[in-house]
């Protein structure tokens, strides 16, 4: 009796649960957890003189990472990420506000303007920017055609160019959480604020921004973190002058062929990310809005 009952329960509850969750668990286990452990192990390995990985425990890779050259790039990477985030907020907030407050068909159109670029590979879009900004690109041709400048303006391979590319790639991640937060905002609160004598600017700072800070917050996290790793943007638009942490990792795995060092850098980047997310959570951020 007891046994058949438990068998029945297994069939009713455990089996369906396993069927549903099983495949995802396997995928995560083999494609996320196992590689991560492998990266962790590799970061603690040595290399021989030909840069072959030798499975011998060492902390030398981590020791290398605190050299001033690396520290300079961490700082540069954090600054690029910071400015990218700030620009994304400044550009994304008014746009999100407009989408969230627009009614009817226009809203879908504006929303699609944010989503559609996602359907093209970001690498191609970044190459597009290089063509557009290059010395014989459209923008320079246009400027010369209009006699605004005599010679092509050097626009590529600057920190600003990299930030531009980063903003371009990452702004949807700012707009979407902002949109969600602004749409939830109760219009009667804005009316109440105005009713009580607040001019629009006051209402913005007293009511709108404080009540949508969760969106600003999660958007910032979702822009800041990928920005540390988007090496291709800095490769294509920054021409090697504006490295982010992602570039260091890429270089160790490819041209330098020093996998253990690359692994150690990856671990550092993961730790930075975890710390930022932890801070976000501590400050009362909503994990759901990060898609975690």
């Amino acid at each position: 009796m007891e046994k058949s009952h438990s068998k029945h329960e297994w069939r009713a509850n455990t089996l369906p649960a396993m069927v549903m969750v099983g495949p995802v668990t396997l995928v995560l286990l083999f494609l996320v957890v196992a590689p991560l452990i492998f990266v962790g192990i590799m970061s603690l390995c040595k290399t021989d003189e030909y840069y072959n990985v030798v499975y011998d425990f060492t902390l030398v890779n981590y020791a290398k990472l605190i050299s001033p050259d690396y520290l300079k790039i961490y700082l540069q990477s954090l600054l690029i990420a910071f400015f990218t985030t700030v620009i994304c907020i400044l550009l994304g907030y008014p746009f999100s506000y407009i989408i969230a407050r627009t009614k009817s068909k226009k809203k879908t159109l504006l929303y699609m303007l944010v989503i559609i670029p996602f359907w093209t590979n970001s690498l191609i879009r970044i190459y597009g920017w290089r063509t557009f900004l290059g010395s014989s690109g459209w923008l320079n041709s246009l400027l010369m055609l209009l006699h605004i400048t005599k010679e092509p303006v050097d626009m590529l391979y600057k920190t600003g160019t990299t930030i531009l590319g980063m903003v371009y790639c990452l702004i949807p991640f700012m707009i979407l959480p902002l949109y969600t937060a602004i749409e939830k905002l109760d219009t009667s609160l804005l009316e109440a604020s105005s009713d009580l004598g607040a001019k629009p600017v006051k209402t913005l700072f007293e009511v709108i921004i404080p009540l949508t800070s969760s969106g600003i917050f999660s958007g910032s996290i979702m822009v800041f973190i990928p920005c540390l790793g988007y090496f291709f943007v800095s490769n294509i638009l920054g021409g090697g002058n504006t490295d982010v942490i992602g570039n260091l990792i890429e270089r160790q795995f490819k041209s330098a062929n020093n996998w253990p060092l690359g692994a150690a850098l990856s671990i550092i980047l993961i730790l930075v990310t975890l710390v930022l997310v932890k801070i976000y959570q501590k400050l009362g951020g909503d994990m759901d809005s990060l898609g975690v």
Partner: peptide, 20 residues
Amino acid sequence: KEPFERDVNTVFQSYALFPH
């Protein structure tokens, strides 16, 4: 006149208190 320029005040159906 805009609402913030008028000497009238409203009590809203949903109260519209500032939650923060």
